[in-house]
Amino acid sequence: MLTVYPYFLKAAWVTIQLSVLTTILGLFCGGLGAAARLSRFVVLRYIGAAYVSFIRGTPALIQLFILYFGGPQIGIQLDAFEAGVIGLGVNIGAYMTETIRGAIISIDKGQIEAARTLGMSRGQSFRKVVLPQAMRLMIRPLGVNINALIKGTALVAAISVVELTYTAQRYIGSTYKPFEMFLISGILYMIIIYITSRAVTWLDNKAKIV
């Protein structure tokens, strides 16, 4: 029993790496997606809407398979870990697009009008007035997205990345101690999620106007 712990810890580290990289890529895609959806240009708005609709309308697992197994057919060669990060990042990016867009459009229109009246350009009023306020609103919902993403990293077990779920599955198969294996990996997931949500709460409190 004791001999399996190091493997689980190593696997947890892979899950953490996956989560961090996916979060970064997801925020990037989410920012781009939100910018496209709120753009002045119709074409960009359509592209943004199509991105959100297709990604949110199909299973992440299928998206991962298209990228990893189908990628080589269109000249994209990725190893399982890279495919996992890119697939999951683009996936969660669609959800983050909606989170970020939601926060931005919930800022009162009067704020922009006031900023414009003071002589700021469209870009300035967005950067200096709307965005700082929207950022504050999006911390919590983005935290929910990240929480889902951490659990979502389990999907890469299906393309044989040796992370927590893959490791648990392997030892459930070989040890005859399914519940112990489930519990070990489950507790590790919960520790990762707990730390993340504490960090989000800390950030949210820090961003609050006193």
């Binding site: 659990k151 389990a154 999907l155 927590l164 779920t165 599955q169 101690k177 489930f182 990996s185 919960m190």
Partner: peptide, 23 residues
């Protein structure tokens, strides 16, 4: 509930399908 909300669905499916067989 805590366990089911804090862990991935895929892991839970493995437990229910491959784990329950062993008991």
């Amino acid at each position: 509930e805590w366990l089911f909300m804090g862990t991935p669905l895929l892991l839970q499916l493995f437990l229910i399908y491959f784990g329950l067989v062993q008991i």
